[in-house]
Nucleic acid binder design. Structure first.
Length: 572
DNA sequence: GCCGTTTTCGGCCCGACTGTTTTCAGTCG
């Protein structure tokens, strides 16, 4: 059983949880959490690093001890440390920590006083009224726990970025209409363009904060007011989405925006630098003693600690701080850099609009070219094209190109990669196209070895241009299939192929770490909408966000090329 | 448990809100 990075990270997180309940040194606990985060976001497997004889202690937050514990897990598949902890604390206690309002101290009390180990037992104790009698608990805490347990079963934990965007947009509009309100900005993981967001953090500048809080609590989508103070309030919307609003004075706007954009790990790292320079950084500004020396803008905050401005999508403490100090941050791709879209469907298969409608909508979205890439025949549910229907669509594209101005249609296909690595249409049919996107839509459960070989064999076909949604995952319903992405990226490089970054809100695939791998190997990425209707080009915004999270610049993106250059690249 | 342009020992980010308390611990972000 090979040990993946996520296994190591999961184990470290559980160790951190259990140590915390045990009352261990909080900094020791943090060390495990930091290590978990580092390992989880690595682009290479730690097992491979060990195999190549690379030192794990070179990784941030991994010292001799943790490097040894990782090696132990890779070698034996087990963590003696975790096994030892399980002798005194049951594994399910980690689950209890996920209930809002329950931290390590209270979970410890629940376990030691009432022998509560599981959510079920917690639920029963709350119903029986046994919790309110414990020291540090009360009737209110007990009923809150009860609510949270029932709520947990019913609601999704995190919201897709595109869904959160809908709630964010209308709430921002509503808050902006409050008298005396100046700025309203969504910060947090939403601003960092995370794939999913757990809550919305909204930052407001206003003369009088009380008015804002009253109006916020009165928003008609609010199901529950969790907390309401003079400068900070938390509500839960009917959809289950939690929203925090913070009000700060205008002169603190930059510091607060920086602070509430996070990530937490990034903020801690920046503040540590400030600390070394004798500066205190909080949401109100950067202070030397009592004197505020920065805070009006985010730039001023970063510059106070000797860093250049760091775009939100990079703020994960994954190397961006060192690069900012050296002035070597990438100039990230922007939505406006995209000149075209290389993946879209029409009514001919499972899309909702005609070829002409899709073309005109693409032009209206500011695009210069659009590749029409229907499904192939194996995907019968989508009414996929066979060679004859594909040829007819190509004729239609040829005719439309003669007619349309300001947009050029390219002839493509999203051809199924069959289980044995063959493509679903003959080479002869594919040879007439401008591009061939290969996609895995079946047999997701193959072994890592077989799945990787399957994709590599498909890439070997002479007309193969691009691999669609390379990991195959769907947020939040389907895990990625098991594939050696390192080999896929290198294979794409060897064969001159491209990788798609599918911008559909449920895909956002390539994931950020794989974008960095592609960048490292010099493989161009194409940010594609996978539009199935004329409105879907709006999703490109989320694809660009993901590309930015992957440190990509315009020069790393295939569809920032002008049409002529693009066609030359595709023809190679 | 990690880490070092003040340190190989002694630090480790910082503030708001709630509930259970009579001055603050716990939790959260």
């Amino acid at each position: 059983m090979p040990i993946h990075n996520s296994d190591v990270a999961d184990a470290f997180e559980e160790i951190a949880d259990l140590l915390e309940i045990e009352g261990a040194n909080p900094f020791r606990v943090r060390a495990y959490r930091n290590a978990a985060r580092t390992v989880r976001s690595l682009a290479v497997e730690v097992s491979q690093m060990l195999g190549r004889g690379e030192k794990l202690t070179d990784l941030p937050g991994i010292g001799e001890d943790l490097a040894g514990k990782i090696k132990e897990m890779v070698d034996t598949g087990k963590s003696p440390m975790l096994d030892k902890l399980h002798k005194t604390l049951p594994p399910a206690l980690s689950e209890l920590l996920k209930i809002p309002g329950l931290g390590p101290k209270r979970v410890g009390v629940l376990y030691h006083e009432l022998d509560i180990e599981t959510l079920d037992q917690l639920h029963r104790a709350a119903v029986d009224g046994r919790i309110r009698k414990l020291p540090g608990f009360g009737a209110k805490t007990e009923s809150r726990i009860l609510e949270q347990i029932t709520a947990r079963a019913a609601k999704p934990e995190r919201f897709k970025l595109a869904v959160a965007a809908q709630y964010a947009d209308s709430l921002v509009k509503y808050l902006k209409a409050t008298p005396g309100v100046d700025r309203v900005v969504v910060a947090g993981s939403f601003r960092r363009a995370s794939e999913t967001v757990g809550d919305l953090d909204i930052l407001v500048t206003a003369k009088r904060s009380g008015k804002v809080m009253d109006r916020f609590a009165a928003y008609d989508e609010v199901a529950e007011v969790v907390a309401k103070g003079p400068t900070r309030s938390t509500v839960v919307l009917r959809s289950g989405l939690q929203v925090d609003v913070r009000v700060v004075p205008e002169e603190s706007f930059g510091a607060a925006l920086y602070y509430f954009t996070g990530s937490k790990a990034h903020n801690i790292a920046v503040r540590r630098i400030g600390q070394k320079r004798g500066l205190k950084i909080n949401e109100y500004g950067v202070f030397r003693g009592k004197k505020r020396i920065a805070g009006e803008t985010e730039e001023s905050v970063y510059s106070a600690v000797g860093l250049s401005y760091i775009p939100p999508e990079l703020r994960e403490d994954r190397g961006e701080i060192d690069q900012a100090r050296a002035g070597r941050l990438p100039r990230l791709v922007e939505l406006g850099d995209l000149r075209g879209d290389l993946h879209a469907h029409t009514k001919a298969t499972d899309g909702h609009n005609t070829l002409r409608e899709m073309a005109e909508a693409a032009r209206a979205a500011g695009l210069e070219y659009l590749a029409v890439t229907e499904h192939s025949k194996r995907l019968t549910v989508a009414h996929g094209l066979d060679a004859a229907r594909l040829a007819r669509q190509c004729d239609e594209i040829y005719r439309l190109n003669g007619e349309l101005r300001g947009i050029t249609l390219l002839k493509g296909i999203e051809v199924d990669i069959l289980e044995d690595g063959r493509l679903d249409l003959p080479d002869k049919a594919l040879s007439k196209l401008d591009l061939v996107i290969g996609a895995v839509h079946s047999a997701f459960k193959l072994s890592r070895e077989k799945q990787t070989e399957r994709i590599l064999r498909a890439m070997d076909r002479p007309h193969f241009t691009m691999l669609a949604h390379p990991s195959g995952r769907l947020i939040p319903t389907r895990e990625p299939y098991d594939v050696d992405m390192g080999r896929v990226v290198r294979a794409a490089k060897d064969r001159g192929c491209f990788l798609e970054l599918n911008a559909h809100p449920e895909r956002l695939d390539l994931v950020a770490t794989h974008c960095q791998m592609a960048k490292g190997e010099g493989v161009l990425v194409s940010v594609n909408s996978d539009a199935h209707s004329a409105q879907d080009y709006a999703n490109l915004r989320f694809g660009v966000g993901q590309a930015r999270r992957g440190w990509l610049e315009a020069k790393h993106i295939l569809n920032t090329l002008p049409l002529k250059t693009l066609l030359e690249r595709l023809a190679r």
